[in-house]
Amino acid sequence: MYIIPILIIILDQLTKYFSVVNLEGEAPIVLIENFLQLNYVRNYGAAFGIMNSQRTFFLIITIIIVFGIIFYINKYNNTKIMNYSLVMIIGGAIGNFIDRLRVGYVIDFIDVNFGEVYDFPVFNIADSFIVIGTILLVILVMTDNYEDKGKE
Rank of each mutant, 00 (worst) to 15 (best):
I32K: 02
N43R: 00
T79F: 06
N52K: 12
Y72S: 15
T143A: 12
N96D: 07
T56S: 12
T62S: 15
N22Y: 10
M88E: 05
G68P: 06
Y105D: 08
S85M: 14
L140G: 03
M1V: 06
D12E: 09
Y84N: 05
I4H: 08
N39D: 13
T56P: 00
I107H: 03
I89L: 02
N113T: 13
I65R: 07
L31S: 12
F114N: 06
I64W: 02
K75Q: 09
D108A: 03
E24Y: 09
L136F: 11
F129P: 00
D111I: 03
N22K: 10
Q54N: 08
E33M: 01
F57L: 09
E152Q: 11
S19M: 11
N43F: 00
G68T: 03
D119V: 12
I63W: 04
T62H: 03
Y118C: 04
I61P: 05
D111S: 04
F71E: 06
I132D: 13
T15L: 13
F67R: 00
F123Q: 01
Y2D: 14
L59T: 02
L86W: 10
V66I: 04
F71Y: 13
G115I: 11
G95T: 15
I6H: 00
L86K: 15
K151T: 07
V131C: 04
I132P: 13
N83G: 07
N113H: 15
F114R: 13
I69R: 05
V66Q: 00
Y76P: 02
R102P: 01
E152I: 04
I65F: 12
D127G: 09
Q54P: 03
G150S: 10
R55Q: 10
M142H: 12
V103P: 12
F109T: 06
R102H: 11
M142F: 14
D108N: 02
V41C: 03
I8C: 13
Y44C: 03
K149D: 11
K80L: 15
Y44H: 15
I3Q: 15
I8W: 02
F97K: 04
I107F: 00
T62W: 02
L137I: 01
L23Y: 09
I8T: 12
L11I: 14
Q37P: 05
T143F: 06
N77R: 03
I90F: 05
I63Q: 08
I9Q: 05
V138L: 15
T15N: 07
I70V: 06
T62R: 04
F71T: 10
T143E: 06
D99G: 11
N145P: 01
D144V: 05
L31C: 08
S53E: 14
I73M: 05
Y44D: 01
I110H: 02
N113S: 13
A46F: 09
N52C: 05
I61V: 15
F97D: 06
F57V: 10
G115F: 03
A27K: 12
